[in-house]
Design a protein around this nucleic acid. Sequence first.
DNA 1: CAAATATGATACGGGTCCGTAACAATCAAA
DNA 2: TTTGATTGTTACGGACCCGTATCATATTTG
Lengths: 114, 114
Amino acid sequence: MSVALTPAQVLRLWHDVALAMVRDDEPDLSLRQMSILLTIYLEAPPHTVRDLARKLEVSKPVITRALDSMGKLELVSRRRDEKDRRNVLIQRTVKGALYLERFADTVVNLSRSI
Amino acid sequence: MSVALTPAQVLRLWHDVALAMVRDDEPDLSLRQMSILLTIYLEAPPHTVRDLARKLEVSKPVITRALDSMGKLELVSRRRDEKDRRNVLIQRTVKGALYLERFADTVVNLSRSI
DNA sequence: CAAATATGATACGGGTCCGTAACAATCAAA
DNA sequence: TTTGATTGTTACGGACCCGTATCATATTTG
């Protein structure tokens, strides 16, 4: 089953969503942060810094810093892997789930007018 | 006619799009820059700094700086309003149109797999 | 055990963006 | 004409992110 959007619908939807996100006062996540957050929530765990760096094709410090930022916002959390203590396991949080839930609802509602 | 996306489809689509944009090497536009670019291309002219600042609910320097950045990339251009030389009219460019066309095509293609 | 490898974090210099406050240019009104 | 509004830009100090190189810790290998 395909969503089957047209280019004009895509641009209108992105315009409305971007405008809604710019207008509200919450701290906007960067594209990289959003990629990380969505990957953590949509793909099966475990998620490590190395895996995310490879998946996004960015360096490891990019992931570490993004996790620092989103950790302060409590959108993700980190825990040492007890099986291999070199690894850090990135985990979901309630706030992160709510953030994405609200985001999805916003987009769904805007998509109704298109 | 409504696009009628579900929350799960929204998150999957955004994930795929964000990942594609992070991976390619082109300079990513910020959310604010994207809002401005889409507004210029989707809404009827004329567009002035003041109008955009009011529409996005941000300060005028934010608009000026975003136009500086996107002007360097030749995604938008500026021209003085000869009727009222205080105003600056923001205009579309060929590169800007191509940028959004490519972006829309990317999203459309990704939406087919969802 | 010692050496090599793997993982994530940190340091550093540079770039971009932000918000507020000032500013020059232009127009309108007195 | 002179005073006051309006428009867009710039200045400044601060925050954030980047890429590369380096580091500490942990594991694997010889």
